[in-house]
Amino acid sequence: MKKILPFFALLITCICFAQNDEAFVDALVAQKMAELEMQENPEYFLRKDYCDGNIQMFVMPDGKHCASKSTYYAIYVFWKEDEDKLKFQKFDNCGSFIPIPIGMSKNIKKALKEKQDLKKEVVKPFEAEKIDNNAFDNMSVQSCHKEYKFIFEGNAFEKSFKEFDLTNNSKYKNINADHNKSLLLIKLDEDISEMIKHFEENGKFFREN
């Protein structure tokens, strides 16, 4: 009996605890993108957020536990409902969330209108104004990333950057900080981040499963 009990404990753990990786999240998003592609004039974009090595665990609606495998990924898919409204849906290592309707901010409207400028922009990497081996002594540096994919009129392009590229908190000034923060992409990103923070803090994300 002593040998049987550990076996059942392991079995219960496997049933009640899931671990999903980046491929799992990408598959969910690919399915959503396929649905959007069936629209007459698909126009949508997505943002993938992750910090290397950040692991998160959740209690699911059915009481089971789910955790990210090695790194937690959150992907937000945005699509146009009409000229002034968007819907977006969150996906992560543990599944999908119910879509949420939102209005379009000034910066979001501008980015979607000036598509070619958005496509040409380049986020420059962090570059200190002076070379110093101790330039980052007073910083807590996390390798956090944001990846965007835009699909407009059947054409797709991607943009990515590290959050560190936008900072100016090291010992020496980041000479690319002002350039980066002036970009359409970064202004769009700031509005999206603020919106996501609002929904997170107010408990507005509800899992579909």
Score class of each variant (00 low, 15 high):
C14T: 07
Q116A: 14
C144R: 03
I196S: 04
E208Q: 07
Y44G: 04
K171D: 08
P61R: 14
K124F: 13
E22H: 12
F157R: 11
K87D: 08
I102H: 05
Q89W: 09
A177W: 13
Q39R: 13
F206C: 02
P42D: 06
F97H: 00
S68Q: 06
D92P: 09
N20Q: 07
M195D: 01
K32E: 06
K85H: 15
F157N: 11
S182F: 06
A30V: 02
L28Y: 06
T13C: 09
Y172S: 04
V122H: 11
N20F: 03
D178I: 09
E153F: 11
K149G: 04
I4K: 06
D49V: 03
M33Q: 10
K69S: 05
K80M: 14
L86V: 08
D21K: 12
A23P: 00
L166V: 08
Q142K: 10
I15G: 01
H198E: 10
F17E: 00
I186E: 05
N41T: 12
S170A: 15
D165N: 14
S193W: 03
L188Q: 02
D62N: 14
R207M: 13
K87G: 02
D137G: 02
I108S: 04
A111R: 13
K173P: 11
N174V: 14
I100H: 10
K162D: 05
E35C: 01
I55K: 14
A67C: 08
L28P: 01
C144G: 00
E127G: 01
I100C: 10
N41V: 07
E147C: 01
L188S: 01
K181M: 14
V122S: 12
F88C: 07
S140R: 02
D191L: 00
E194S: 09
M104Q: 14
K109Y: 08
K3S: 04
F78Y: 15
I196D: 03
T167M: 12
S70L: 12
F24M: 01
N169A: 15
M195W: 02
L5I: 14
E208T: 02
D178M: 11
K109C: 05
I102D: 10
Q142F: 08
E127A: 12
L46A: 06
N20K: 08
N168Y: 09
S96A: 12
A111E: 05
K181V: 09
L36T: 04
C144P: 01
I192K: 01
I192E: 05
V29E: 05
N176G: 09
F58Y: 13
E201W: 00
I75M: 14
N202Q: 08
N155M: 11
I100K: 09
N202I: 07
N107L: 04
A111P: 15
F126P: 04
K109P: 03
K110I: 06
L36A: 01
I196Y: 07
Q31T: 07
N93C: 04
K113A: 10
A34G: 02
A23R: 13
K119T: 06
V25Y: 04
N180D: 13
E147F: 03
D82T: 09
D21M: 05
E163W: 13
N168W: 13
V77A: 06
F97I: 04
F24S: 03
E153L: 13
A74S: 10
F157W: 15
I100P: 08
M139A: 01
T13E: 01
G63Q: 13
E22F: 15
K187L: 13
E163Q: 13
F8R: 00
F199Q: 05
F45E: 05
C144I: 04
N155L: 15
